[in-house]
Each structure stands twice: as structure tokens, then as C-alpha cells.
């Protein structure tokens, strides 16, 4: 199986991850979020092969013993933890024992190479104790922990605490054709609005874009931009947007996120946000919050 072909549609994430790998700037922990079955795990596994592959220019080379072992699931330095079905019940959970086992495995140095990777799949099934234990594992670096999860779940404060420690990567549903503009509000709603969680992911991504826009505007080096593939487009947006508006837009997005958590209707929240953003870009100052 060729990893890259299956990862179609996630070029942004792929470029971001492998860019960091090429520049030897791989973060301690990544959080992959997004709906189920859109390629988070595949991306995590490909990235893991890349980290572990001793190859030269192209990683993962998919040919060396390390890559072959990793794709067969028998690489000693690639640890994959998944929820287990509780005995006698249908419910699944990621238990504290599993996190402890992971911690134990990570406390030893690598076996095949010099690096280790841990992937935690479906992290929304973490029990509260397991989540707390995980926070500690991630703090103390046996290096490289790459975690992915289906949806954002369990207690909000845990979610926030974990997010603080991760470099977060949102995976979106794939949309055919170019990304929708302001006119495509309806299709945007269809794609993201139905499920509150996905909509939240979208907003987080939007926040990340706003950050990039501000980074570009401030004249910082382009390496500091996360969505590097979109730099030309972002420069164009920056030309059309008053400098002061960007910060306000970012604030609006995070306010909308807060409203969603307070159970606002995704559709109304998105419409209100779109209206406020248009006003902000037109240079109109808000006299009061919507």
C-alpha cells in the first residue's frame, strides 16, 4: 500500500507534518482531530513511518526493514494503542492500564532505531483516569508521541488540558473542488454545520488560518506559517482586509466557539459569524457584540 496516494485531500496536513520532519522540528505531541474514517490514522501511521525510517531524501521510503515492519504492524518502536471492548459490555474504552503499559514501553530507549512513536487512536474513549495519566506521559518526554482521535469527547477541561500540550491538526471532511467562499455559506453549513463537533473543528481551523494571516501580516518568516500551501491566497486576503480587522475576526471566531459550547445553534452561529466577518473586512467597527 502506498501511503501517499491514500492520503489524497490531506495535502495540507501532510505537508505540515513532513515539512516539520524535514526540518527536524517534529513536535513532542500532535493531536489529530476530525470526523471518523477520513484518514487520520493513516496519516499518523505514514508520519510514524517517516519518523522511524532511517532513509535519506524520501521518507518513508516504504522499502527499508523499518518501513516494512511498521506497515505490517510489527515495528517494536511504533506503539499503537486502541480502545478495548469492556468485557461483558458493548462499550469501548481506553483504560489507564493501557496508558501505563504505553508509559512503561516508552520508558525504554528505542529498539530498532533511535526514535519511538506512540499513536493513540480514538482518544475520545479515554477514561478520566487514563486521560490524566496520559497528560503526565506527554509532559515527560520519552520522545515522540503522536496521538489521534476520532471526535473531541469526554470532559471539556481534559480536552483543553490535552490541547495545550499538543500541536493540534484538524482533519476536515473532504470537499470536492475549491474551498467555498462567502457565497458558499450554504454548502459550508451542509458540510460542517450538521454536526456540532465538525463545525467546531472547522472553527479551530479557521482560527489557525487567522493566526497565519496575522503572522504573514506582521512580516514574520514564512516558515512560521502553518498553512504554507496557502501563502499566496493568504497574501491576497491580507491585501483586501484592514490590518486591524484580523485580530477582531480571530476574536469573533473564538467567541463563536464559546457560543457553540454554550449550545448555540451551529447554523445561527455560523451565519452571525459570516455577517460579522463581512462587516469587519469592510472596515465597519462593531458598536456592540452580536
Amino acid at each position: 500500500m502506498n501511503g501517499s496516494s491514500v492520503l489524497l485531500g490531506h495535502e495540507r496536513a501532510r505537508e505540515f507534518l513532513f515539512g516539520a520532519l524535514a526540518e527536524k522540528r517534529v513536535a513532542q505531541a500532535y493531536l489529530f482531530t476530525g470526523p471518523a474514517q477520513i484518514g487520520k490514522r493513516l496519516m499518523a501511521l505514514t508520519f510514524a513511518r517517516g519518523i522511524l525510517c532511517p532513509g535519506g531524501s524520501k521518507v518513508p521510503c516504504e522499502e527499508c526493514p523499518s518501513c516494512r515492519k511498521a506497515s505490517r504492524g510489527v515495528h517494536p518502536d511504533l506503539l499503537l494503542v486502541e480502545p478495548q471492548t469492556d468485557p461483558g459490555r458493548d462499550a469501548k474504552s481506553l483504560k489507564i492500564e493501557q496508558v501505563r503499559d504505553l508509559q512503561r514501553a516508552l520508558s525504554l530507549k528505542a529498539h530498532e532505531g533511535t526514535r519511538k512513536v506512540a499513536i493513540l487512536d480514538d482518544a475520545e474513549f479515554l477514561t478520566e483516569q487514563a486521560g490524566n495519566a496520559l497528560l503526565k506521559v506527554i509532559e515527560e518526554p520519552p520522545p515522540w508521541a503522536v496521538l489521534s482521535r476520532g471526535r473531541v469527547g469526554w470532559a471539556l477541561d481534559m480536552d483543553m488540558a490535552l490541547r495545550e500540550k499538543f500541536l493540534s491538526l484538524a482533519f476536515l471532511l473532504l470537499t470536492p473542488g475549491p474551498a467555498p467562499g462567502n457565497a458558499g455559506l450554504q454548502s459550508l453549513l451542509q458540510n460542517f454545520g450538521k454536526e456540532r463537533r465538525t463545525f467546531e473543528e472547522f472553527l479551530r481551523l479557521f482560527l489557525l488560518l487567522s493566526r497565519d494571516l496575522m503572522v504573514l501580516q506582521s512580516g514574520a518568516r514564512e516558515e512560521q506559517v502553518v498553512n504554507r500551501d496557502k501563502i499566496p491566497e493568504m497574501k491576497q486576503i491580507n491585501l483586501q482586509t484592514p490590518p486591524a480587522a484580523l485580530g477582531r475576526i480571530a476574536t469573533m471566531v473564538s467567541e463563536t466557539l464559546g457560543q457553540l459550547r454554550a449550545n448555540a445553534s451551529p447554523q445561527l452561529a455560523l451565519e452571525a459569524l459570516a455577517a460579522r466577518i463581512s462587516l469587519a473586512r469592510a472596515g465597519v467597527k462593531e458598536s456592540h457584540h452580536v
Binding site: 516508552l106 530507549k109 529498539h111
Partner: peptide, 21 residues
């Protein structure tokens, strides 16, 4: 080595991974 302790005793080779940190 970087990651292991290797012990040679006669024909037997033993190894253990080292602890991180």
C-alpha cells in the same frame, strides 16, 4: 551502544534496552 547494553559471555550474547532519561 546508544540504545542498548550488550553483554558477551562465551558464545552467548545478551542485550537489554536502556532506560530513557
Amino acid at each position: 551502544t546508544e540504545t542498548h547494553l550488550v553483554v558477551l559471555q562465551g558464545g552467548v550474547i545478551f542485550f537489554s534496552r536502556l532506560i530513557e532519561g
